[in-house]
Design a protein around this nucleic acid. Structure first.
Lengths: 174, 174
DNA sequence: TTTTTTCGTCGAATATTATTCGGAGGCTGT
DNA sequence: ACAGCCTCCGAATAATATTCGACGAAAAAA
């Protein structure tokens, strides 16, 4: 039986989630296909209670989905590029427009609006380099406010994304 | 019953995988928790045959794992930064050393060795900005060959990574 | 303090799914 | 045509998911 009274408080940021939810999130992030039964055992809950919580985590959007991590290098050796984009105009509409175009591009796999030496950083995965050129040319054509695109070809992915460091992120500020 | 004789050839890159395997990979990438039964139905296979293929895809490393996509912004609003790192020395050992240190850093969530205006691009997720400074200071201390680190603070993730565009990547070169 | 309400858990029952197994059919090379 | 190999299928079994009513703790109201 779980008595929450004697547990230390959680970071306010975690909202309505308790320690058990967070443990579940961490486990599910690293093993998205774990069975409900095994997850229940890992957090010391009955299968039914665990199932209910898992449902809630998904319904309330704490977990946005599950994905298989495909070994894409082995599958097809794609050309991966990271583009840093500077805008000539910083009008909000211009930004939105570019974000939309990138969102529509299947081969743009991740995109960030950033501060610093450029305005956007976009990760691409393409079948070949000529395809990457097509894509960037098209972007520039669609979005004349793009001032500059600087391309970094990925020589090697030295660390693949396998989830966020939830434990480290939830520590209280000192 | 599947007769492969009349199917068009696959890209050689896909190795020993056939069309069915690729469809499974695509589905599993976008829905990592799909049941074997549903997957079988989606690719027109019996549950047993599908199960056998799934096992093979994992055993042979085409799928490296499954992860839950946690809504990290909602969970804790981390400070996300993308750092571009230039090395003063391009000796292989220096590169390996930095890769190792980054690999050991939980808060470095993805890292790329790239060509272009810098040598590395690293994505960080930290509890707060001061923590990011600690991490980069530590990196510079451990790796004196780092010539320069330029930080881009992520203002907004306009497109989250949800998998590679397998369909686009497997098209044959024109 | 006592009562009431709420919330989350449990265990059992049922529904669904995973996994294993033997057999059948296609494909290839002899 | 035949043998060997591969992959499929369907049925049987094992395991898991999901639902449900009841119980106990904590919090709110009396």
């Amino acid at each position: 039986m779980h008595t929450l009274r004697d547990e230390p408080p959680l970071p306010a940021r975690a909202g309505s989630l308790d320690r058990l939810d967070l443990r579940m999130l961490r486990i599910l992030q690293s093993d998205g296909r774990i069975t409900n039964k095994a997850l229940a055992a890992a957090v010391n809950l009955s299968a039914s209670a665990c199932h209910q919580r898992l449902q809630r985590l998904m319904d309330q959007g704490w977990i946005e989905g599950f994905m298989g991590r495909v070994n894409i290098e082995r599958l097809c050796e794609p050309v991966q590029c990271i583009a840093t984009i500077c805008m000539a105009s910083h009008a909000p509409d211009t930004f939105r427009q570019l974000e939309q175009h990138i969102d529509d591009l299947a081969e743009a796999t991740a995109a960030y609006t950033v501060s610093g030496g450029c305005d956007f950083i976009v990760h691409f995965a393409c079948a070949r380099m000529s395809r990457y050129m097509e894509l960037t040319d098209e972007l520039i054509r669609l979005c004349p406010e793009i001032g500059n695109i600087s391309t970094h070809v990925v020589l090697k992915q030295s660390k693949a994304f396998t989830g966020y460091p939830i434990a480290q992120l939830l520590v209280e500020p000192a």
